[in-house]
Design a protein around this nucleic acid. Structure first.
Length: 429
RNA sequence: GCGAGCGUAGCUCAGUCGGUAGAGCGCUGCACUGUGGAUGCAGUCGUCGCGGGUUCAAGUCCCGUCGCUCGCCCCA
């Protein structure tokens, strides 16, 4: 075996079939985002580590980012998320931008994770944000955008749900249980882990962080109160808007959704795939009204979410929802090369056909026709064009439909029309 | 960081009780010198991940190591 340098751990090779899936995701995300009037943007892949140090949380930067010094010794990070870049970009042009601002992006991110199914060290992420509006209806729009994507790719509401909660509501409820505000962060973490631990371990963890049994009881009651949202004016308006936006079948209240990130201030949401008995987090987001001010801009409210490409790909794959034709033909027409003498004539014919708008490849060398036909087959070409001595002498070309096996010889001037006729019912052309 | 499983041909994998390496697919050629998918025949293909140990003999057993995968942890 030849020695081949191994790919970097946690990265993926995108062979044409995989790249095709990636492009399809990108395209679908583009269509959904643009249908809501969002504009595409992007930040740099490299950022100064300082950008993340302030806000993203210690662990994200120190433990899970790829960081390296450049030649002048500045610490550079491969971006682990987009929101800090977004916030910086907005702060830089805060007075010129038009609000409400609706932006989306799809690009690569890097995190130093331990790779496993649905998670790698290099992945793509869809980000969508609505900046400058502080209303439950804006939150609902983001939920609708997310649900719109699911609907478009065929993920029905029985396969995926967007669960919603509100941090202000939860803070109020915790205060009622006499949980001091400086413990809220810890309690949010506790709630975040409810689904991951069994009852016993979770209860032990709760007592460990200093909760009294009565408070634990209270939290348990809280976490099974599926009607709790009715106590929140914000969420009541949110769900009314969700109805109006036509996605109430996807969006559901859950007191157990809290999200790990510190900068969320109000509504938080998370899309979960329900396959068998496993719940997998597909996407998450929420409202972050203080973030802009925290990084030194003027105060500006925002709400947004992110969705990684790896989990959604796994889910779509399992449900058979990925596009069928994963290796689209590079060209529908192959121009064969009869012999050395006619090679350039074949190339020129290829040029003519390309100018006529067809996707055309020329066989690069004069091989036996049988071999060229086999090649045409394998790459999925529909038509083989033959330009041998007989055709050249008579100003003709032979066209063979590889699907029907029918071959016709037409005059050179009619070739384009004839091909167009043959490709009429071929969608890939 | 912890745990489990797996590393054999280009790919997917088999290899029994330890006895000197196999299949399918692919690729090349021929049947078929102006025509593809089928069929038949022939050919091509190996540091059995790496290092050590046990043994007359190791792909197989033991130890170590590296890599991959799947979980746990974590999850913006």
């Amino acid at each position: 075996m030849k020695k081949i340098i191994q790919p970097v751990k946690g990265t993926r090779d995108f062979y044409p079939p995989e790249k095709n899936v990636n492009s399809w995701l990108y395209q679908t995300i583009r269509e959904v985002s643009e249908s809501f009037g969002y504009q595409e943007y992007d930040g740099p892949f490299l950022e100064s580590i300082d950008l993340y140090a302030s806000k993203s949380g210690e662990e994200l930067v120190k433990e899970q980012s790829f960081v390296f010094p450049d030649k002048s010794g500045n610490l550079i990070a491969l971006r682990p998320e987009l929101t800090p870049s977004l916030v910086r970009m907005i702060a830089q042009q805060q007075q010129q931008l038009v609000y409400p601002l609706r932006w989306w992006s799809f690009g690569p991110f890097w995190r130093y994770e331990s790779p496993q199914k649905g998670r790698g060290r290099e992945f793509f992420q869809w980000n969508a944000d609505l900046i400058g509006v502080d209303s439950p209806e804006a939150d609902a729009e983001l939920a609708a955008l997310m649900a719109g994507f699911f609907r478009k790719v065929g993920l029905s509401p029985d396969k995926v749900k967007v669960f919603v909660n509100n941090r202000r509501l939860m803070e109020g409820e915790l205060a009622k249980l006499k949980i001091p505000s400086d413990k809220q962060g810890e309690v949010f973490r506790l709630i975040d882990r409810r689904g991951k631990l069994n009852d016993k371990d979770w209860g032990a963890y709760a007592l460990e962080i200093g909760l009294k049994p009565a408070q634990l009881e209270g939290i348990n009651t809280l976490l099974s109160s599926d009607d709790l949202w009715k106590d929140s004016e914000e969420l009541t308006r949110f769900f009314t808007a969700v109805d109006a936006l036509g996605v109430n079948d996807y969006v559901e209240y859950s007191p157990r959704i809290i999200r790990g990130l510190d900068y969320y201030t109000g509504t938080v949401f998370e899309a979960l795939a329900v396959s068998k008995d496993i719940r997998r987090s597909i996407s998450g987001g929420g409202r972050y009204d203080n973030l802009m001010a925290d990084v030194g801009g003027d105060s500006l409210p925002g709400v947004g979410f992110a969705m990684g490409d790896m989990v959604i790909s796994v889910v779509l794959e399992e449900l058979g929802l990925l596009p069928e034709n994963r290796s689209a033909a590079p060209a529908k027409i192959l121009v064969t090369v009869f012999d050395e003498e006619s090679l350039l004539a074949s190339y020129q014919l290829g040029v003519e056909l390309r100018q006529a708008g067809f996707k055309v490849c020329s066989y690069p060398t004069a091989e036996k026709l049988g071999k060229q036909f086999r090649y045409a087959d394998k790459v999925g070409a529909r038509i083989a064009v033959i330009l041998g001595p007989d055709e050249i002498n008579n100003q003709q070309v032979a066209l063979k439909d590889l699907q029907t096996r029918e071959q016709t010889t037409v005059s050179r001037s009619q070739a384009i029309e004839a091909i167009r006729g043959l490709l009429e019912n071929d969608p890939g052309a």
